[in-house]
Simulated assay, not measured.
Amino acid sequence: MTQHITYPNAKAELFSFTGANEVDEHHIILHASNSESTFQQQLDAILDAYQDILSNKLPGTVAVFKRYFLSDAANQADDVAAADTSDCAKSIIQQAPLDGTKIGMWVYLIKGVQTRYLTSELYEVKHGAYRHLWNGSAHNLAANSEYQTRLLFNEYIMQLTQEGCTLANNCIRTWLFVNDVDLNYGGVVRARNQVFFTQGLTNNTHFIASTGIGGRQADPNVLTQMDNYAIAGIQPQQIRYLYAPTHLNRTSDYGVSFERGTCVDYGDRSHVFISGTASINNKGEVVFAKDIVKQTQRMWENVEALLKEAECTFNDIAQIIVYLRDPSDYNVVSKLFRQKFPEKPYIIVLAPVCRPNWLIEMECMAVRKNSNAAFECF
């Protein structure tokens, strides 16, 4: 179920899923609605709207992960950090909302769980047999994107080890934000490939659902930021990897290492994580170069095929993030998405994709009801 909520200077799209075990989950996409106001005014409008939703629509619900999309991180990130001191994993990245405003926000919230920061610095969301481990805005200042990415993964592996987990068995999703993706993505790919190989993540085992996309921190020397999500207590038979071979090829065919999508089955629901997906065919070729409309439509076909493999449809989507290379394509893409997904929470941001010929990419999360006595509930 999705609600559209309007405030004087902000608007929100709220997706809600009610579980059978009293653990409800929600996704909110918040947008500023007055593009002529200052950044501080837009930030205040979004946070006021968020607090109103928490108090009046979602009492007892806690945020477990937030991502702020900024138009100018160098001048805005400190203000966000000062204004939002709440406990949860937070990601702050320069990916300008393309509706003309300076800030947007995605929040993932859950009711009926216990939360805390761990000594490993991961954020734990605990219920039943599972500990969900979130992390945002990880970065370092190593010499180049390859070294930064390698160090990010090495540090993350140590964090997981501290929690009795491994990258191969427990990590479900990563996001890699690359400052100047056209220049620095190659180093990210090399580092990820090398680290994954040492951790037993290969084409013959599996990789991890991921989005590698343009994005910038406040410090221009940070070339790679990583957000990640893992689950302690998950069993191998609960995790399925999505391929949609009629539409997509294996990413390893063109030298990268991530899964197109991952489905996690619980006793009462299934979660689906669709990686950044573009207009590509099952030979790894860019389809419909230079045509934003046809690329958008092919991208939807690919996402739909991945969802179908997880027994889901577009109706099960909980949130969407859309990445555009060229801001002049915003009006066309916005109209297409309004027509295709009028009830879904989504945001369209400026973020070049890893291949210059890809004009657009999207990722999403989906959730559907499940009844499988073989697994513990969420």
Score class of each variant (00 low, 15 high):
Cys354Asn: 10
Arg368His: 13
Ile348Val: 14
Asp316Trp: 09
Phe337Asn: 03
Lys340Ser: 11
Glu309Asn: 03
Leu350Pro: 00
Arg338Gly: 04
Pro327Ile: 01
Pro327Ala: 01
Arg368Gln: 06
Arg325Trp: 09
Ser334Glu: 10
Leu336Ser: 04
Asn331Trp: 01
Ser371Tyr: 10
Cys354Gln: 11
Pro356Cys: 06
Asn370Leu: 07
Val303Glu: 09
Glu311Trp: 07
Glu343Val: 11
Glu361Phe: 02
Asp329Ile: 00
Thr313Ala: 06
Ile347Glu: 03
Ser334Gln: 14
Pro352Asn: 13
Glu309Leu: 07
Ile321Ala: 11
Cys364Ser: 11
Arg325His: 10
Glu363Gly: 14
Phe314Cys: 04
Ala305Asp: 01
Lys308Val: 02
Val332Ser: 13
Leu307Asn: 04
Glu309Val: 09
Glu361Gln: 14
Lys369Trp: 01
Pro356Ile: 11
Val349Arg: 00
Asn302Cys: 09
Cys354Ile: 15
Asp326Met: 00
Asp329Gly: 00
Ala305Leu: 08
Leu324Tyr: 07
Val322Gln: 03
Leu350Cys: 04
Asp326Gly: 00
Glu301Val: 12
Leu307Thr: 04
Arg368Cys: 04
Leu336Glu: 11
Phe337Leu: 15
Leu336Tyr: 05
Arg338Ile: 02
Lys335Cys: 05
Glu309Met: 11
Leu306His: 10
Gln339Lys: 15
Asn302Phe: 13
Glu363Gln: 12
Pro352Gly: 03
Phe337Tyr: 14
Phe337Ala: 09
Pro345Leu: 06
Leu307Val: 01
Pro345Trp: 10
Lys369His: 13
Ile360Lys: 03
